[in-house]
Structures are given as structure tokens and as C-alpha cells.
Design a protein around this nucleic acid. Structure first.
Lengths: 129, 129, 129, 129
DNA sequence: GTGGTCTAGACCACT
DNA sequence: GTGGTCTAGACCACG
């Protein structure tokens, strides 16, 4: 599992970390039950603060993406928790603002759909690292 | 132009204001050249501070959504001209993380596409308020 | 003398008016001694406030570009007042910040010089309107 | 990096600050990647308010002169990429009004060119402070 | 300790 | 009456 973190980015490190882990799951570079590096190990690997990794892991547990046990954190792929209406609502809202931003710049629904398809294809293309 | 602001929201007021204004443009509730309420007037209307509105207005000018002259701010719906590569890149990145979040929750590309279509239809449905 | 004023511009109207009048002088569309439209007339012509025209005229008198007498304002071309060191200093400062802005964007002295020559040629090309 | 701010100047503090920082970049007193003083530190150094420095920094980020990450602001001297047509247009307009102002005072293109060369030489003369 | 957001209030420039 | 600038001080998010 390769996690790509950009130190020079305005988006918070813990958020980048969260999406990178999710991305690895979506790309099937990790499987259900796989255990993640320890907080300390990953922190030193990525050159970031322990607290930052910890925060990301804990939020992923809340989202149902990771499981926490005595030995550490593991991937929790298939048996996803049921989609709360809140989560769906939040996603739809993000989608709406994204579309508004696109439309106001003169882009069409077709343009963005095309992008979405491209991105989805890239995510389905399994790559090991 | 009805602007819906939620004081108890995690997203900053000025960002909410920006999307609400863009939404009004996309929904064609306002037209090119229409002038916006004065910074201070809107601020007191929405129960927020002048500087917050000011920030939103100025950012919208930078995005090319509003125009500014000596007498205030006006809608600039017309030829947006150059979509910077950065802007497209930023939109694509937002779309990617959105899709990752959706997929990891078990949603499919079809699900999100369906939502996108619904949202786009609502945005095209002209509503006056 | 054609004066081009852009209502939709961030630069103050009185400043636009001042440069337009100076431009007409530089382009020799008006000559020394020519009288200018009255404040009221010009104001209604350009659709702006009397105070605004008045301010522009008075500042041009201060700069030595216009002369004021009982009958109104006249062009004061050739016998320019001596260049105060302040005025030269101000021009040099404007030039410096302009060059800094250009250089920091990756432009060279040659680029800007080329522009300056083009602009100067256009200004020398006498056009009557 | 020495920043020269004049409190008793007609030009706003945040603009002065912006040009001073750009000047330091052009004079190569700072390099790509160097980090800038924190908003609050610089503010107290220069005897101005945090928000004023903040505004200058943020505008410089938009101009592509600074980069922002979680830990603060850094110099971004490198490939500025796309010079927007707007930016070029704005510079040319500033140059035109500057030339008009110069010509109407009896100065020639040669005079101003000479100044430009002097200024450019001074900017190329590396000075550390 | 870093920046981001929001509020409050003052003064100035432009029309 | 419009926005622009500056100050002051508070609270929050990130690392």
C-alpha cells in the first residue's frame, strides 16, 4: 500500500491520509482483514506527527472503514456499515456544490460525467506497489 | 434571490454565501448585470458581519463570477473566458475524492451519476423566490 | 476629443477621465489653448456626476495640464510647468513596482520594453474623432 | 529579507508589503522554498495588524508568488506557469497610463526607457540585508 | 505555534 | 450610500 502525501498542500494531512487509505481499498491494493502499520511506524514513515496518523485512523474507524482491536487497526472492507442517511446527505451536498462550481464556470453535466467515468476507470485499474 | 445560510454548519459562512450566490446564478434567479445587495445591507440581512460578506464577494470576483465597479458588485454570468488548468485540476481532484468516499461506502458510479442527474435537473428548474 | 470611460471598471471615474484627457493631448487630438466642455456639459455627456468631472479638471490644473480662467478650462500643452522632483520620483516609483510585478511573473525587461514601444507608437499615431 | 514599509504613504500597507516581498524575490534575497515569517510575527515586527499581513500573503498566493501549506507560507519562485491574458492586459494598461502621464509632462520614451534600465539593473544587483 | 474565521467598530475614498 | 483599509480581540482547526 503506497500512500501519497503532499506536504505542500493546503488540505490537512489527516484528510490526505484518510483518502489515500480509502483509495488503496477501492483499488483493492489491500484486502479485508489486512492490518495497517502501527500509528508510530506510519508516522515516522511519512514524516508526520503521531497525533495526525491517530486522528486519521480513528476517523476511519468511525466511518466504518477500519476496525480497531487489541493488536491495532485492520481493513474492514466488504461488510460495510449501513449507509446512514447523514452520510448520503453529506455526499449529495458535496456533489451539489461541486456541480454548482462546475456549472457556474461554464462546464456541462456531460463534461463532469465524462471526468467521473475516467476517474472511476483509473480507480478500478488495480495497481500494486 | 434567496440565500440560505446555516449558522450551525461546519462550512464557513463566506463559503456558504459563495455557493448560494453561484446557485442563484445557475438557477437563473439572477441575470447578468444584476447588482447585488450592498455588503453592509446583506450582512445585516443575514445577521452576519460586513467583512464576511465582503470576503465572499471578493472571492467571487476573483473566480470571475462577480464584477466590481465603483457602485458595488454585479452578477457576471457572461463569457467566463479562460478556465485555468488549475481550476479544472482542482475540480477533478474534488471529484476524485468524492468518488473514493462514495465507492468505499459501497456506492457505485451509477448511483452517484444518478444523483448528479437529479441534482442537475433541480438546478435547471427555475425557481423564483 | 473622444473620451472613453468604462463604467464597469474598478478604477475611479475621475482617474479614468484624467488619463483620457491626457491621452487626447498626447495624441494631439487637442491643441494648446483649446477649451474643454463645461463641467456640467461633460458630466451629462458622460453620464457622471458634476463633482467627479470637477475633481478631474481641478487635479489636471494642479498637474499643469489644464489652465483655468473665467471662461472655463483650457488645454495647456507646450509650456509645461517644470517637472518637480516629486513628480519624477512618483513616476519612477510607479515604474519600479510595475517592473517588479512584471519580473516576478517571469517577464523580462525586453518584453516590457517591446510593449512600451508599441504603446508609444500607438500614442503617436494621430487619430481624430 | 528587509521589508521597507512607509506608514505615512497613500498606498495601502498590504500593497506595500506585497511589492516589498516581490522585490526581495526579484533581487534574489530569498529563494524558492524559503519560508516566510508567521503572519503574527511579521505583523508585530512591522507594527501592523495580523489581518493586514494575512491579506498580503493570501493575495500573493493567488498571484502564484507564495505557496501555502499547513505550516505557513513559503516562497514560490519556480515555474509560475500560465501568465493569464488578463494579467498581461492589466500590466499593459498600467504601462500605458504610466507612459501617458510621462509624455504629457514632456518626457520622452527614451527618458522612461533609460529609467527602466537603471531600475532593472538595481533589481539585478543582489543585496543581502 | 501555525493559519482561518468571525465579530465590532473606526476612518477614508469615491459618487 | 457605496466599498476599502486597518485595528483589536476571540475562538477554532491543524500539527
Amino acid at each position: 500500500m503506497y500512500l501519497e502525501i503532499e506536504t505542500n498542500s493546503a488540505t490537512p494531512l489527516y484528510l490526505q491520509l484518510m483518502t489515500q487509505i480509502k483509495k488503496a481499498i477501492v483499488k483493492k491494493q489491500v484486502d479485508n482483514g489486512d492490518s495497517l502499520p502501527s500509528v508510530r511506524a506510519l508516522a515516522s514513515d511519512l514524516g508526520m506527527n503521531m497525533h495526525t496518523v491517530n486522528k486519521a485512523y480513528n476517523l476511519l474507524v468511525e466511518e466504518g472503514v477500519l476496525a480497531k482491536n487489541q493488536m491495532g487497526y485492520t481493513i474492514r472492507d466488504n461488510p460495510k456499515v449501513d449507509l446512514t442517511t447523514e452520510m448520503v446527505g453529506a455526499l449529495k451536498e458535496r456533489l451539489e456544490t461541486l456541480l454548482i462550481d462546475a456549472f457556474v464556470q461554464g462546464l456541462s453535466l456531460e463534461d463532469t460525467s465524462k471526468w467521473a467515468i475516467e476517474i472511476a476507470q483509473q480507480l478500478n485499474r488495480k495497481e500494486n506497489t
